[in-house]
Design a binder for these strands. Structure first.
Lengths: 153, 153
DNA sequence: GATGAAAGTGCATATGA
DNA sequence: TCATATGCACTTTCATC
């Protein structure tokens, strides 16, 4: 199910990451090819799931999302049932922008964006009422220094 | 410099976040308006910086980025000069997808995507040779449970 | 991989509510 | 300020060479 990716694909992906609003002609010119092959490759990459959602990045501050927390979670429960409930809870909460299961001491890390500290508390209370969690540390972001979705191809 | 955002703007942003590849007609239909006002609002939101980059999300695994680390950094240095050097180092390194300055005990958190553990070590050695860092903890992601750039509007 | 053509879309503008 | 309508240029998409 793996798509083989060559150098031209990488260039195309790089252009799309940089600006997905470009026309095919522009992309073709940038990568040194022409419309048809570029278009066929993009279609294949999409079908193969290499290219996922096309989206715009929205400024959180402008919309009143002033608070961003990284939440470190330790749990004592490791049964499949608990894990399924936890995953479902995370996926259902739109405040959770990212969630990773970790190796080591800390079990999970979440990135959570909310309007303010009170909204975080509402989120937190809701989460711990959904699933048993052993220990939680919240790291409050003071400043987003960098944010990109572009992989270094 | 703040753009006032009403309910229709929010709906438009929501649609664009969901799928930026939609036509104006589709968006207008979804939000219950018509092309002209939707177009004018999108333009204004773009000009006001509320709408930033238009991009595609690329599957990291498909491109061989198998390792994702969250890096917790403590530093003893807090002069402006050190901070400027640190920021510059982060911005210059494409492996660093996200970086936040934190409140409290831990000073910074980074999200770093690399091909493998060895590549992380190369990154780490490079970073600590660029700037003095007091203490580093790396959390290795085993599984990306959730990733979205969509704010819950 | 190139060419080209049909269908669809973006963008601007005019007009009335 | 918004809805509707129109028009041209550009783009996407796909069949054919």
């Amino acid at each position: 199910m793996t798509v083989r990716i060559d150098d031209l694909d990488r260039k195309i992906l790089s252009e799309l990451q940089r600006d997905a609003g470009q026309s095919l002609d522009e992309i073709a010119r940038e990568v040194g090819s022409s419309k048809t092959p570029v278009w066929n490759r993009i279609r294949k990459l999409r079908e193969g799931g290499v290219i996922g959602a096309q989206t715009v990045l929205v400024d959180p501050e402008a919309l009143g999302f002033e608070a961003c927390f990284f939440v470190l979670i330790r749990t004592s429960e490791h049964e499949a049932e608990w894990q399924a409930a936890f995953l479902k809870a995370l996926r259902n909460r739109p405040e959770v922008l990212e969630a990773h299961r970790l190796a080591g001491d800390i079990d999970y890390i979440l990135k959570v964006r909310v309007r303010n500290a009170r909204a975080y508390d509402v989120f937190y209370q809701g989460l711990i009422s959904d699933v048993r969690i052993h220990n939680v540390t919240a790291l409050l972001s003071m400043e987003e220094i960098k944010f990109t979705t572009a992989l270094p191809l």
